[in-house]
Design a protein around this nucleic acid. Sequence first.
DNA 1: GTGTCTGCAAATTATTTGCACGTTG
DNA 2: CAACGTGCAAATAATTTGCAGACAC
Lengths: 135, 135
Amino acid sequence: MTHVEILKKHNLKATPQRLSILNTLEMYGHVTLEEIEKYTKVNFPTLSLSTIYRNINEMIKKNVVSEVKITNSKDYFEINKEKHAHLICKECGKIEDFKIDTQDIVKNIQSLTNDKIIDATLNFEVICKECLSGK
Amino acid sequence: MTHVEILKKHNLKATPQRLSILNTLEMYGHVTLEEIEKYTKVNFPTLSLSTIYRNINEMIKKNVVSEVKITNSKDYFEINKEKHAHLICKECGKIEDFKIDTQDIVKNIQSLTNDKIIDATLNFEVICKECLSGK
DNA sequence: GTGTCTGCAAATTATTTGCACGTTG
DNA sequence: CAACGTGCAAATAATTTGCAGACAC
């Protein structure tokens, strides 16, 4: 689905500002607010910070974008895709998506509590292969 | 270990301010900054916000306290204990500690990536037993 | 054309800092 | 008593909001 289609599907007008924000998210995968500002302004110098805030919040509310919170670091944002976990390199800080079925984990864990587990947010601290190989 | 001992062990002087913050964390388990301010000031009305900020940050740096980041909610703080996961009730918002060995999960997952997995931060969205039973 | 969106400036909220004084070990 | 910690006020940073004009559909 194109970004235009995604926006329309969620009753958001496909403005150039929104498209450029989504484009930045697409290109960089996981970005902080300042990074969105920095990278997006390269191609869209007149974009204002308040528009970024308004749109990120709006798109989060509509489930187009989601927030990735990582201990001891800033908040990141990503385009909403299939559910996945994150691998966060302790050394270089890179964040990678990690496609595992979180429901598998949920099933394994469910027997350990009386609460009904609905879903899981999983962040793994890693040393990524590049850092491991000393690159 | 008492709070005084914990602080000394980390080269932090055991001031009444720090002890009262730790006491609030102990009593409530997981608290936001505003909650720390609110609850702590009941017994310590002169405590200043900047002292709370300074000490929370200091204690995080020294691993006395840790930050709990949950998608779509404020940051919480807790006293550092054995590694554990969190169960977050979608309905009432309550956060419970969930004592599972995160290393077990790490082991199960390690074969799926070439990154070296060091540790895991696990948050489970749940409906807690109280909400389930309609209380 | 109408309702939504944007940029700007101003308001509000959150966090940090400098400094003079108090306290801990 | 020396180093460290605190409160206060001021500085800075982060986020939100009101409004007038612009744009998407």
